[in-house]
Design a protein around this nucleic acid. Sequence first.
DNA 1: GCAATAGTGTCTCTTAGACAGTATGAG
DNA 2: CTCATACTGTCTAAGAGACACTATTGC
Lengths: 250, 250
Amino acid sequence: MNEQEYLAAYDPRAYPAVAVTVDVVALTIREGALHLLLVRRGEPPFAGHWALPGGFVHPDEDLAAGARRELAEETGLGGERLRRVHLEQLASYGAPDRDPRMRIISVAHLAFAPDLPDPAAGSDADDAAWLPVTALASRQLAFDHARIIDDGLDRARSKLEYTPLATRFLDPEFTVTELRGVYETVWGHPLHAGNFHRKVLSVPGFVESTGASTERGGPRGGPRAKLYRAGDAQLLHPALLRPAREETIR
Amino acid sequence: MNEQEYLAAYDPRAYPAVAVTVDVVALTIREGALHLLLVRRGEPPFAGHWALPGGFVHPDEDLAAGARRELAEETGLGGERLRRVHLEQLASYGAPDRDPRMRIISVAHLAFAPDLPDPAAGSDADDAAWLPVTALASRQLAFDHARIIDDGLDRARSKLEYTPLATRFLDPEFTVTELRGVYETVWGHPLHAGNFHRKVLSVPGFVESTGASTERGGPRGGPRAKLYRAGDAQLLHPALLRPAREETIR
DNA sequence: GCAATAGTGTCTCTTAGACAGTATGAG
DNA sequence: CTCATACTGTCTAAGAGACACTATTGC
């Protein structure tokens, strides 16, 4: 049997049924707090519970494309706004009993976006909303999505250390103070403004000056801040490390 | 329709056929060179090409369990030896045309092992072998496995920076020089012996002394080296960073 | 004795972080 | 004017890396 004959005789249905979904942990910052996009499930299983946006991967679609499509469907986003969203693969989850219907492998993705409008009405979800991550503990989450969200948040926190992806939470032009706000929000603790400022400007390729400044100072006064855009670095050297906490090491 | 009725009426076959495989990028160090476990495919597609060990995930098996099973089948390893192998999920690969038979999502894993015996005869592969990673460029690799291997090697190199996983390439008791050998082999360039020594001992929880020393000095003389075992740290603080190369940043 | 290796001491340069200080602009 | 804010200066401590040096062992 040669390769052609083999492929012609091949029967995909001979293997046990498995389905593959893509789910998205989409993060944004609204009013100084980290928010996560969740949808309320309208159908069993877990009807009425909150879940990550996601769905079955389409036949001719790459995994990343599927994740971006799901994100677009839930947010109503498209075009340039959608293209600016950072999307990366997070991990795959495949415990045999994670979905009561059948064996489902979920390929989870992680997205960082600037503050986005509330989810579009008319999406296929019963309800969709940006919820503050601090409010998740009290909510019923479907499947193993609580675990996936935890992994996504961990990944996001450490990505800010080594990559310039914090800029993906902001509009194309931003101030150093706004950038510091992203770090403080994602890491959950305040940073020293002066040291942060010097550090950001000293890392090659992290940000580049636009030459412009903000129109006005802060709400309670102060000088106008200079505006920057993301530089061409893919990695931060040296990195912006969080102080090491003993419990994360052991 | 309530949740029970829904599940009873659910038909898994209504969704397009997708299959899920687990593949393993298994690395070890033999004779001072980084080696990778590959199998030569006996059947189409890609008959005769080298491929990563792997196969379809079993119905009641977790993804990590499937990867460990595939590794055991190809290496003939079991029990304590198998349990000591470090195994982590790498990433999933799901381009629609990556397998000519049907839509197949591969969940790739990464394994670090001490020098292991040659693959057992009687495995289901036509041929299996540890090949030096430097010899891969000249070989025909099946599917998108060349890409997966690249991603695995990148991940391995950076894991050595932040985690104590270099010890997983060694037997339970090792010398600092042997540990340095792992770093030099995986990173592909020599390190300063004295500085490395001091650094390793100064990172809390990286290694702990056994109190013992080697039976004899090196093959060409020198003092007996002290023996260490892996400490209880999960992360290295401060990390052992590779010097930043400009091209990896931009 | 010779050569190679294990391990330590010391110096310099870079960086993180604490803290102080100056300039700007909204109210 | 007042005060919050944007930035800059300076000092200290820690760590990375270069280099030198001692001690121990196989041959």
